[in-house]
């Protein structure tokens, strides 16, 4: 479920994808929102009590109306003012967006929240939860009818590519023929695996790191015969780094 994503093709012919939130994450966000609604209800009661001089009848009326407004309006208000996020969604890193990648419209926010009345049936969002599990885009009924999806928000920073490549001279780059063959025989996908391995090397266990770079070095060696004098004394990781350097930067000796 967690691997689902929404692919959108722009009129310019570019495809981008938005990672969809799974039912479990959404359920946790809902629990947080439930707590927020309970807290706001208590707060509204306390606020009403401050108007003590207004009379018991008016105070009771205000308490009923405010409690109702909090219950039914919480989702609408927060999702509109926080651009598709309730407190729970913000905490869990989720956001409601238009299913076609456009801006969330006020009418979509209202309708998806009112349709909770259907999704919540018969108890504990059973209908909505089932729809969420069965839907290709993890949508509850409210999402399906309002044309919205809930995605996982992400703000990936630009990777530090300069730090990945060796500062010292690249021995492989001195061999023009080898450099050309590396660029010719290693596919972009295989090159990307090497680049990703370098970018994430600090996140790997020591054993996994050694095994990964050994496998990559073996693969690169199998594609191109590397001159012994250039790779002599290099660890597998250094070799991968130099190959990737040649591939991505056209490294000079």
């Amino acid at each position: 479920m967690s691997g689902r994503s929404l692919s959108i093709v722009t009129p310019e012919g570019i495809t981008f994808s938005l990672p969809l939130a799974g039912p479990l994450t959404r359920f946790l966000a809902w629990l947080v929102d439930l707590a927020a609604i309970a807290a706001l209800t208590v707060l509204s009661r306390q606020a009403v009590l401050l108007l003590g001089a207004a009379g018991e009848d008016v105070l009771r009326a205000l308490t009923i109306l405010l409690g109702f407004a909090v219950t039914i309006g919480y989702g609408m208000a927060t999702e509109w003012w926080l651009r598709g996020q309730t407190l729970g969604k913000r905490l869990l890193g989720l956001r409601v967006v238009d299913a076609s990648g456009l801006r969330l419209n006020p009418s979509q926010v209202v309708v998806r929240n009112l349709l909770r009345a259907l999704d919540a049936l018969p108890v504990f969002y059973a209908v909505g939860g089932a729809a969420c599990f069965l839907s290709r885009r993890s949508q509850r009924i409210g999402d399906l009818l309002a044309g919205t999806v809930v995605i996982r928000t992400r703000h990936p920073a630009l990777p530090d590519l300069e730090g990945l490549f060796p500062a010292e001279a690249n021995a492989l780059a001195a061999h023009a023929l080898v450099s050309s063959r590396l660029k010719q025989r290693i596919s972009p996908g295989e090159a990307a695996i090497g680049l990703s391995a370098l970018a994430r090397r600090d996140q790997l266990d020591a054993d996994a790191r050694v095994a990964l770079f050994a496998a990559l070095a073996e693969r690169y060696r199998s594609l191109v015969r590397l001159p012994e004098e250039a790779v002599d004394g290099l660890s597998d990781e250094q070799l991968v780094r130099q190959v990737v350097d040649v591939l991505y930067r056209g490294a000079k000796p």
Binding site: L158, P188, A192, A199, Y248
Partner: peptide, 12 residues
Amino acid sequence: ASEPELVRHLEA
């Protein structure tokens, strides 16, 4: 290039 982090950054 197929660099996943860069692709994700640009997709967002």
